[in-house]
Amino acid sequence: MKSYNDKNIIAVKFIVWLFILSSVMLFAGITSAYIVNRIGLLNANKWIYIQLPNVFICSNILLIISSITIYYANYLFNEYKYLYSKTLLIITFFIGIFFLILQLNGLKYLINNNIYLSGNVAGSYIYNIYYTWSTCYIWSFRYLLLLFFYTTK
């Protein structure tokens, strides 16, 4: 049975990559719909250029920072420095919460400027992509928490 478990870990990593691949295809579908729709409507002069608020750039940077911290946490875990690793995980978690707050700010800004889900197609795409993405995001929170609890064990 031991060999089964070892093989299992390699397999589980592979599984995670495949989940990522299928999410990529999901967003590829939505993105291609966005591109096609935008080109068609530009020709008919019905497209609105929406300037995304700067908040979203800040939150993107935060996203990159949190990836770095999680990668570093993994590295430290392999080096057996458990305490540092746990601290980094907590930091990542808080970065994530901060990210969420910034995102909500950005959404509030969009709504104040009358860009809703229904109405113009351009607006709909923003919300659509955001909604799909946020589902992935909330799930990643769950895994972060799980990771944390496993490391404490």
Binding site: L18, L21, S22, S23, M25, L26, F27, A28, G29, I30, A33, N128, T132
Partner: peptide, 14 residues
């Protein structure tokens, strides 16, 4: 299936 079903998911979401 892995590569094409998510696109149906996108179409269904829209």
């Amino acid at each position: 299936g892995l590569l094409s079903f998510p696109v149906l998911m996108a179409a269904v979401i829209l």
